[in-house]
Nucleic acid binder design. Sequence first.
DNA 1: CAGGATTCCTGACTAAAGTCAGCTTTATGG
DNA 2: CCATAAAGCTGACTTTAGTCAGGAATCCTG
Lengths: 301, 301
Amino acid sequence: MERQVAAVRRFNRTVTQRIGALDDAYMARARPLAQARLLWEIGPGGAEVAALRARLGLDSGHLSRLLRALEGDGLVTVGPSDRAGDDARVRHARLTDAGRAEWTELDERSDRFAQSILEPLAGPHRERLVAAMAEVERLLVSSMVVIEPCPPGDPRARACVRAYAREVARRFDDGFDPALSSPVDDADLTPPAGLFLLATLNAEPVGCGAVKLRPDAPAEIKRVWVAGTVRGLGVGRRLLAELERHAAQRGRRRVRLDTNRNLTEAIALYRSAGYREVEPFNTERYAHHWFEKRLAPRVER
Amino acid sequence: MERQVAAVRRFNRTVTQRIGALDDAYMARARPLAQARLLWEIGPGGAEVAALRARLGLDSGHLSRLLRALEGDGLVTVGPSDRAGDDARVRHARLTDAGRAEWTELDERSDRFAQSILEPLAGPHRERLVAAMAEVERLLVSSMVVIEPCPPGDPRARACVRAYAREVARRFDDGFDPALSSPVDDADLTPPAGLFLLATLNAEPVGCGAVKLRPDAPAEIKRVWVAGTVRGLGVGRRLLAELERHAAQRGRRRVRLDTNRNLTEAIALYRSAGYREVEPFNTERYAHHWFEKRLAPRVER
DNA sequence: CAGGATTCCTGACTAAAGTCAGCTTTATGG
DNA sequence: CCATAAAGCTGACTTTAGTCAGGAATCCTG
């Protein structure tokens, strides 16, 4: 671990600092960095002011002033949304022609900067750098995924469950009709009857998982799903572990689940997480495999 | 190439930006970021003011003021070097006990930050991240190596040649006595009689190479050396290519060199760069292999 | 439709960063 | 020993960044 920490620190120092500083220098033209970044973030398609504030993490007053500055330079116009019926409080920033030209310039500079990094390297090294960068990026992204309890009625939770249903419908041999599957009630996934976990990346939902805690039955895990964009990065495993931890904490000694034979990664995950296949314990229409795992009793924490 | 540029840009954006910002946040305690960075950079061993200025890229006035601020807080003392005989204009910054305590705190924060990146990842992913980070770092470092012509009498050039002699003395079966080797005159490596190239990383010399251009003989390459810290990153290949380019530009159609059998990486490099082994063309005491390469005639540029 | 919540804006600041000219002290090369 | 250069300091700025309290317009909810 110590060695790993040292490696991460060295990386932060050389890469983050140096590249970061250079990137800023390339970005800032005659303009203050914050303005350049904002212009960039608005982009050719325009953006809502609220979204910009969230993405750049700026104070509302500060952002307003930056927008006024860009407006003053004739690069941006800020006005209400063009679609009628939209919330008229929400304002929309758009690039003018001059702004678009400036944006293109920034885009090209960014390209040139990336090229200047690749250019001194010989072909194979170049390919290795790109591959390693992609790997770092993927893994860092996955380490930024946050998992927390969430009411199953939350819109983000609903979005995940819908995505889950869509995917399952695509992958099951005979499609998926929710009406034929045993239904799950929101109340069963709300503490203390159960728990729904939501995985988010930068506040965007990217996964979910739930556990049902019936009074004197084994805990039952449902709806473990991970978005394609972060699959293969251990998010599923983290969700599962978190659900098991919760069940153990609530005194359950066993946890079980059923799954479809086409969900091969899920089955692999369950096996490698210590689940053993058992006889069917329900009559779920779409299930082919039933798993169970014994939990070590855990102290309340 | 386009795909690679896009990958680098995505990396710059997500990794550099996010990690960079977080790193700053961890670094800055109650103190302004620039002060914290400076304190960190001074380190437990102290540092010369000029070195700090170079490393942090700060204006002399700005740095002075930052030092005064840290001095005012009792964290740093600035005075002349402790060794007698040193240049008394050069001032040396040292941490006080309080400053050392603060430094330790920053060090621990940096550790904690690195841990917070690793912690959400499962073991194997963690190892992959560390490996990928190391790879990115090495390759980026290599892409920051600058190769340029340099007078062979320059102190940095001399340092490289000394390092070359030391290494060669260690690796040759029978040591290396410069007196027994055919001597190379500085004048032969100075334009137009020849060329000496220096490879530097952040202004530190990390490699060299030279070519001798006798009037009507093939160009002869000498003293290609790369420091251990950047070996395996294509610096040797770049040096070689640059020397060949120069020879071609000066009208030479062939370039040759001799080498010792123990310099296996060098031999592999020459072969893969298109050199073919030829009969001995000189009586160099330490040479076992003689190589030659035909150059494509190149237009002046 | 009243009252509260949202969204964005402005005014009035403070803090930090960065710039530049000129000064003092110390080295160095004839 | 003198002229010149180099290292670092101070004073006197300007520019950016960031904060916070209110205020107008718009929306939502009962």
